[in-house]
Design a protein around this nucleic acid. Structure first.
Length: 484
RNA sequence: GGCGGGUUGGCGGAGAGGUUACGCAGCGGAUUGCAAAUCCGUGUAGACCGGUUCGAUUCCGGUACCCGCCUCCA
């Protein structure tokens, strides 16, 4: 069996991945707060952990891996959006979840097995908060329930921080209801009109109407779905502190019988043309923006996987173009070798389906996707359908082809603007004249016609004595007027 | 102020203490009437200064620069 090695943030070392139960490998990833379209940065962890999910399924068997990714559907940003638009919260979160699914589906990300919504687990959160209070790790104050950081001595282990240092840094929020500046909210009161639930009962007294703090949801939901110990917890590096540190504190104190997550994985951030993506710099865009511009999801996916997940990744126009060229080349290659949905099905059924061991080994080495892509380039140099099978298997594992019936569309460059019949007729007429000139070996005239067409952005290709054409960059039919 | 990450050839981007990353671009060649496409060949780079070592781009220390987190954030 392939050995998977993963970089564990907590120990800052690469570890051999040994699941608690190989028949039930459990992966939890922090999902989005659903108040708006997912931006490109949101797509990075989705794609990184989608690939981890696929790798785990490949190695342990699809039926032995469970992937959970939450939706945070209770949050001040959502409340603000509701207040600002006058729309019901549930309508906003439902709509955003729908968008999220559409956009991530377009990137070829598999749906997780569980997508728990925070609001469906408030009861479990309340129970966990009460449990923490009973064990002396939480206290009620002014309608809030706070987690007492001082009660958990291992606090800071994940992010390598020292509580004393952080207080010295003086960037912690001081609030009157905090016993200690580092303490964080488990439950907070809701005002009139804000979403709220009956709060936990602490020392025989109800805390009152309110809503959960942000961190508790992941602790409660992962416990409900996976139990006190599970294998991998993932998310963006920006969540390492405080979100994940707080999750650990809550889970470890509420369920000291478990280990919570054995391996912690964090992806680095995304930049755009060398700069942090931000609305003020004007380089902020959503996944939908890119898709609407005609950039296929596969292209976005290949660009993302072209940088190792633990390094900052820069989204650039140049990378987009290179990824698009690579994919078009690969899809055309398979198309010309006659790959179809049926052929792939038959290959899988016949036992001739084979995963390249080197490819899988590279990928299993802490999800080295750039290395895996490099290996795919080597595998793609095979020139018979049978020898291309390892390449095809790799392409599938990378999630770069979901629907083999779409191969011909993918292979034939992106469907450009429709060609008007009169333009087609004009080009064809010129090509006919060029064919006559070529037949007469009048190369000067033949090249003159091709130059003319090239000037209008028409790409002429001579194949097997036949000339064909496609609109290329800078295609402008008006330049052909009067030339036929 | 605290914590962490990065610096690789023209560009992107990996692994590995000593032997080809890979892709794009470029250059040379095959093929083609010429092109396109394709194929073959071609690149000794590793911020700077020290140290360890028979040998370091790869390990250790320092310097410089860049970036992220510490506040909602993937």
């Amino acid at each position: 069996m392939t050995t998977i090695r993963l970089h564990d943030t907590k120990t800052r070392r690469k570890v051999e991945f040994a699941p608690i139960d190989p028949k039930d490998v459990r992966l939890y990833v922090c999902g989005p707060t659903v108040y708006d379209r997912a931006h490109l940065g949101n797509a990075r962890p989705v794609l990184v952990f989608d690939l981890l999910y696929r790798l785990l399924r490949e190695v342990f068997g699809a039926e032995h891996v469970t992937y959970a990714r939450n939706f945070t559907d209770v949050d001040d940003k959502i409340n603000a959006r509701a207040a600002q638009t006058g729309r019901p919260i549930r309508e906003i979160t439902d709509e955003t979840i729908l968008w999220y699914h559409q956009d991530m589906d377009a990137l070829g990300a598999l749906r997780p097995d569980h997508e728990p919504r925070a609001t469906d687990y408030v009861g479990q959160m309340v129970a966990m908060i009460e449990r923490l209070a009973l064990a002396g790790h939480a206290y009620a104050a002014e309608g809030h329930v706070m987690f007492s950081v001082a009660s958990y001595e291992a606090y800071g282990a994940l992010s390598g921080r020292d509580v004393e240092d952080m207080i010295a840094g003086a960037r912690v929020e001081v609030a009157p209801y905090k016993r200690d500046p580092m303490d964080f909210v488990l439950w907070k009161p809701s005002a009139e009109g804000e979403p709220g639930w009956d709060g936990p009962v602490i020392e025989g007294e109800s805390v009152g109407h309110g809503r959960p703090g942000w961190h508790i949801e992941c602790s409660a939901m992962s416990y409900q779905l996976f139990g006190a110990s599970f294998d991998i917890h993932g998310g963006g590096i920006d969540l390492q502190f405080p979100h994940h540190e707080n999750e650990i504190a809550q889970s470890a104190c509420a369920h000291p019988e478990g280990d919570f997550a054995n391996v912690w994985m964090h992806n680095e951030m995304l930049q755009v043309e060398g700069k942090k993506m931000s609305k003020s710099l004007g380089n902020f865009f959503t996944v939908r923006d890119l898709l609407d511009k005609g950039i296929p999801g596969e292209v976005i996916r290949l660009v993302m996987l072209g940088t190792h997940y633990r390094k900052p990744m820069d989204w650039t126009e140049e990378k987009r173009a290179e990824a698009e060229a690579t994919l078009t080349k690969w899809y055309s290659l398979l198309h010309t070798h006659g790959f179809t949905a049926k052929m792939v099905r038959d290959l899988k059924a016949s036992g001739d389906w084979a995963m390249d061991a080197e490819f899988l080994g590279v990928l299993a080495n802490d999800l080295n996707t750039p290395g895996a892509i490099a290996r795919m380039h080597v595998l793609s140099s095979a020139r018979t359908p049978a020898k291309l099978v390892p390449f095809v298997a790799a392409l599938e594992l990378m999630g770069l082809i979901e629907d083999w019936d779409a191969l011909s569309d993918l292979a034939g460059a992106e469907a450009g603007p429709a060609i008007a019949p009169e333009v087609d007729a004009a080009v064809t007429a010129l090509l006919t004249r060029r064919a006559e000139a070529r037949a007469a070996k009048d190369w000067a005239e033949a090249d003159r016609i091709r130059d003319l067409l090239n000037a209008a952005g028409v790409q002429v290709t001579d194949m097997g004595g036949q000339a064909s054409w496609q609109p290329g960059p800078g295609f402008d039919a008006s330049k052909l007027e009067g030339q036929a």
